[in-house]
Simulated assay, not measured.
Amino acid sequence: MRIVHLSDIHLSKNNYDEFHDNYREALINDLNDFHSTNKIDLIVITGDLVDKGGHSLLKMPEFDTYTSPYDIFEEVFIKPLARRLGLSNKNFLFVPGNHDINENVILWVDEKSLKQKISKDTIKEQLKLNETSFNSSNERIQLFKEFEEKFHKDTINYEYTNNESAYLFKDENSNNSIGFILINDSWRCSTCKLEDSNLNNHFFGFKQFYWAIEKLKILNQGLELDKLICLFHHSVDEYSEKDEVKRFLINKDVDLFLYGHHHSIKSEYMFTPVNGCHGFRGRAALNKPDEHTDIFQPGYQIIDIDLLSNRISQIHHRKYIFPSSMFVADTSSAPPLGIDNNSSRGSIGYEFSQKKNNSNYLEGLKVEDFKRD
């Protein structure tokens, strides 16, 4: 299974000319080279499709007939990739980032009131209100979520809500069932800050993870998933509910989580004695194309998963070279060939944890194992 991970595209008036004239063709050509040797199954985007709500795109003369920046994004970004690679809407997954909110609809008085009310104890109630409607708490994400709903209206095994969404991908070769949890962790984001910093905590509602699991169980007719992958935008440690999120990722057989936000690469492994979960953060895919600082230069990842051996076999790190208008191996992130196969740890690839079976685990424990000498 081959997954392309893009994040933090930040499409805007400022980078549109470079995107249109050079970057898009370079990206398509680079993806096509990989696609021709091992087909791409999914292209996932972990937030910030547009920059600052996409308002600058709507002001461009060539897009004066558009009312949503995400329709522009689909037309200029997704459709050209899909046509060249022979993909359809079911091959694209995306979650919102903090730049995908429309701050023009936020009223300060409402925002102040919500910040004072929302906590770990009350966030679930607000999520329930948001699930099928938009209000002062989540209206800022409405354009994005309406675009998502429209984009995937014909996608089989895709379950949408205004909060989290879920997608069941069936691998044609192995017949494996891979569940995708798509978390909306940006619906409470804004640049409005209160003087009391404790009221600016990032609550997004960790119950989204559990509700998505329930959706996947129904989509998979109650059968166990072969793989479970989570997509969200922020780093786990940025959540006020980080302990609850870590507990879910580790204990609910999540194999992999992908995210963005910080525009630079990071890999992590969360684990307990009985289970673990790999996480990968990607570069900003576009943002500032002529960025000079190496760690923030545009790029993306291609993740190859060997479903038979239960491991990530390789991660191809790619970086955009502005003067040459082309993508190359990102050797500064994964030397020497821009390919990460985890060989430094004495293995090829990142091995996934085996699916837990609590009864077998307990049966394997003996009293003698806990006796001290």
Score class of each variant (00 low, 15 high):
residue 311 R to S: 06
residue 309 S to I: 06
residue 316 H to W: 14
residue 322 F to G: 05
residue 292 H to R: 04
residue 319 K to E: 05
residue 298 P to F: 01
residue 325 S to M: 06
residue 317 H to S: 15
residue 316 H to N: 12
residue 289 P to M: 05
residue 322 F to K: 13
residue 313 S to L: 04
residue 313 S to E: 03
residue 315 I to F: 13
residue 298 P to L: 00
residue 321 I to R: 06
residue 317 H to G: 08
residue 320 Y to I: 03
residue 302 I to V: 05
residue 296 F to G: 06
residue 290 D to N: 05
residue 300 Y to W: 06
residue 324 S to A: 12
residue 316 H to T: 12
residue 291 E to A: 14
residue 320 Y to P: 09
residue 301 Q to I: 03
residue 307 L to W: 02
residue 322 F to A: 11
residue 311 R to M: 14
residue 291 E to K: 07
residue 304 D to Y: 01
residue 315 I to W: 02
residue 325 S to E: 12
residue 325 S to P: 11
residue 307 L to S: 00
residue 292 H to E: 12
residue 307 L to G: 02
residue 301 Q to C: 15
residue 291 E to W: 06
residue 321 I to H: 15
residue 292 H to N: 06
residue 302 I to P: 00
residue 289 P to H: 14
residue 298 P to G: 10
residue 307 L to P: 10
residue 303 I to G: 05
residue 305 I to S: 07
residue 323 P to W: 13
residue 307 L to A: 12
residue 308 L to E: 12
residue 314 Q to I: 00
residue 323 P to Y: 08
residue 310 N to A: 06
residue 309 S to E: 09
residue 300 Y to H: 04
residue 313 S to P: 04
residue 316 H to M: 09
residue 303 I to K: 00
residue 298 P to Y: 03
residue 314 Q to D: 04
residue 314 Q to P: 10
residue 316 H to L: 08
residue 314 Q to W: 03
residue 310 N to E: 04
residue 293 T to M: 14
residue 308 L to I: 08
residue 295 I to L: 03
residue 325 S to R: 12
residue 295 I to P: 13
residue 316 H to I: 10
residue 310 N to C: 01
residue 294 D to Y: 03
residue 316 H to Y: 14
residue 303 I to S: 02
residue 322 F to W: 11
residue 318 R to C: 05
residue 320 Y to H: 06
residue 320 Y to M: 10
residue 293 T to G: 11
residue 295 I to T: 10
residue 294 D to T: 13
residue 310 N to V: 08
residue 292 H to Q: 11
residue 323 P to C: 15
residue 315 I to C: 10
residue 298 P to K: 02
residue 296 F to Y: 14
residue 296 F to A: 14
residue 324 S to T: 01
residue 315 I to H: 02
residue 296 F to W: 15
residue 296 F to N: 15
residue 319 K to W: 01
residue 321 I to V: 14
residue 312 I to W: 01
residue 325 S to V: 15
residue 310 N to Q: 09
residue 317 H to A: 11
residue 291 E to F: 05
residue 289 P to A: 13
residue 313 S to N: 02
residue 306 D to R: 01
residue 290 D to A: 11
